[in-house]
């Protein structure tokens, strides 16, 4: 026996995908090296394939009926629960953001706080958006006529290179109204998205409501844009103009709703646009009479 105590070797985390509530590796068996902004090795992240994207869409579709059919109150509570879980892991996210070098330690705390607060903000919208986006229409005849917002369906989200606040800011408005989504994480800084998936997995959010893919945006985004069972696509994280146009063109095939905002400011008041972009309006008529 030696007298000197050995330095304990840390147990590292394997970063995998998040599909249907489970954490599988890419079916392709591929991974890619993620480094900090200084170039230090951080981890091997899974490099999702077309098949992974399709599996994620299937999982999102499967989850849609249950999630869109849940009460708005219930969805709001679950979003709030995500905020609670994120708060509990605040130190972990601060460390991850700092380690990745995307934020200095003194700024990272503020980013995590803002992400938590954004979730709380959106949580409150679940049972209010219908009052703001809906209407009772005074038609010229003996009819009751009501318009209500409904979720569009499965939304593909290409997340921005703002690993936590940006990520939360694109996921929350999509799911709070009852959509389910497939998120392609920031390619450069994907690790916080998988840690966020761990938060989602422990927040009573049904499996499949949010699915997270890591890998090449250029490789996966066009498949999602062309997927016939995806109803809408958020191209926020597509920086390359040609790729964005190719995705918009592919999205035309089944008339996906496309959101392509210019240079969002994640610290600004988000407004309702990110929610309404993925809402349909359903109008129901019924005669009145005795």
């Amino acid at each position: 026996m030696s007298d000197t105590q050995a330095v304990r070797l840390a147990v590292r985390k394997t970063y995998k995908l998040y599909i249907g509530g489970a954490f599988p590796r890419s079916e392709s068996g591929r991974s890619y090296v993620v480094t900090s902004s200084k170039g230090d090795f951080l981890a091997n992240a899974s490099k999702a394939s077309r098949k992974d994207a399709r599996d994620a869409v299937s999982a999102a579709r499967k989850a849609f009926a249950g999630w869109s059919g849940a009460t708005a109150y219930n969805r709001g509570q679950i979003l709030y629960r995500i905020a609670e879980m994120l708060e509990g892991r605040r130190a972990q996210f601060v460390a991850e953001l700092t380690e990745a070098g995307t934020r200095k330690a003194k700024d990272a705390g503020g980013i995590v706080d803002a992400a938590i607060d954004r979730l709380v903000w959106y949580a409150g919208w679940s049972d209010k958006i219908a009052a703001v986006a809906g209407a009772a229409n005074p038609v010229a005849g003996p009819y009751l006529n009501i318009s209500s917002p409904e979720p569009t369906g499965v939304v593909a989200v290409i997340a921005p290179d703002e690993p936590l606040l940006g990520l939360v800011s694109v996921i929350a408005p999509v799911i709070v109204t009852g959509n389910t989504c497939v998120v392609v994480a920031s390619e450069r800084a994907p690790l916080p998205s998988i840690t966020l998936a761990e938060v989602l997995a422990t927040s009573d959010l049904p499996g499949g409501v949010v699915n997270v893919l890591t890998g090449s945006v250029k490789e996966i985004a066009p498949w999602l844009a062309a997927h016939m069972d995806v109803n809408a696509i958020d191209l926020t994280g597509v920086a390359e103009e040609d790729l964005a146009i190719a995705c918009e063109q592919a999205a035309a095939e089944n008339l996906k709703r496309v959101l392509r905002p210019s240079a969002p400011d994640w610290s600004a008041d988000p407004g309702t646009k990110r929610m309404t972009a993925f809402l349909e309006t359903k109008t129901v008529w019924h005669p009145t009479g005795i």
Partner: peptide
């Protein structure tokens, strides 16, 4: 986008009209 219950093909300027999925946006 429009559901007519116990009626059909009613239109009014105050009533939003338009589709889901491949019926447009």
């Amino acid at each position: 986008g429009v559901v007519w219950a116990n009626t059909f093909n009613k239109f009014d300027p105050t009533s939003p009209f338009g589709g889901y999925k491949e019926s447009g946006y």
